[in-house]
C-alpha cells in the first residue's frame, strides 16, 4: 500500500515527516488503543493507528519496527511525543477520524492488497 495514499485517505496532518530514505510502501496497518495489542502483533512493515498520545506509543513503535504512527480522533499529542518521534526517526501524523472510521477509510486499500497477494499466490502455485 502506498504510504502517501494512506495519509491522504486519513486526511492526516503531518507532525513529524518521514525521513528521505523512509519506505514509501506499507504492508499492513495495526489499529489499537492498547499498547500491548500492538506489541503482540505479528505484522511487519506496518503503520500504527491509535488514540494514544503518550511518548510510549513511540517507544512501542521503535520496539516493533513500525513504519509510522497516525494519531486518530483529532488528538494533539504533547510535545514530548513529537520530540520522541523525531528523535527515533518515526514519522507521526494526526487524523480527524475516529479509530473505526480510519479503518473503514483504509479498508479498500487493505482488501485490494489482499486480493493482489492471493492472485500472486495462485500464480505462484
Amino acid at each position: 500500500m502506498d504510504l502517501g495514499e494512506i495519509i491522504k485517505r486519513l486526511d492526516a496532518e503531518t507532525l513529524v515527516p518521514p525521513q528521505a530514505d523512509h519506505p514509501s510502501r506499507i504492508h499492513d496497518v495495526c489499529a489499537a488503543d492498547l499498547l500491548s495489542d500492538i506489541l503482540a502483533t505479528d505484522k511487519h512493515d506496518f503503520l500504527i493507528l491509535t488514540g494514544l498520545v503518550t511518548s510510549q506509543v513511540v517507544r512501542v513503535a521503535e520496539a516493533t519496527d513500525a513504519l509510522g504512527i497516525v494519531i486518530v480522533r483529532d488528538k494533539k499529542p504533547p510535545q514530548t511525543t513529537i520530540d520522541a518521534a523525531r528523535g527515533a526517526g518515526i514519522p507521526l501524523w494526526r487524523s480527524p477520524f475516529q479509530l473505526f472510521e480510519s479503518c473503514v477509510a483504509l479498508a479498500p486499500l487493505v482488501l485490494e492488497k489482499q486480493k493482489r497477494e492471493q492472485t500472486n499466490n495462485i500464480k505462484g502455485e
Binding site: 488503543d33 492498547l34 499498547l35 500491548s36 495489542d37 506489541l39 503482540a40 491509535t50 494514544l52 503518550t54 510510549q56 506509543v57
Partner: peptide
C-alpha cells in the same frame, strides 16, 4: 488509560 494493562505482558514475553 495510558494504554497498558491489556493482560498481554507476560504472554508476550513468553511468546
Amino acid at each position: 488509560s495510558l494504554g497498558f494493562g491489556a493482560g498481554m505482558g507476560l504472554p508476550n514475553m513468553h511468546r
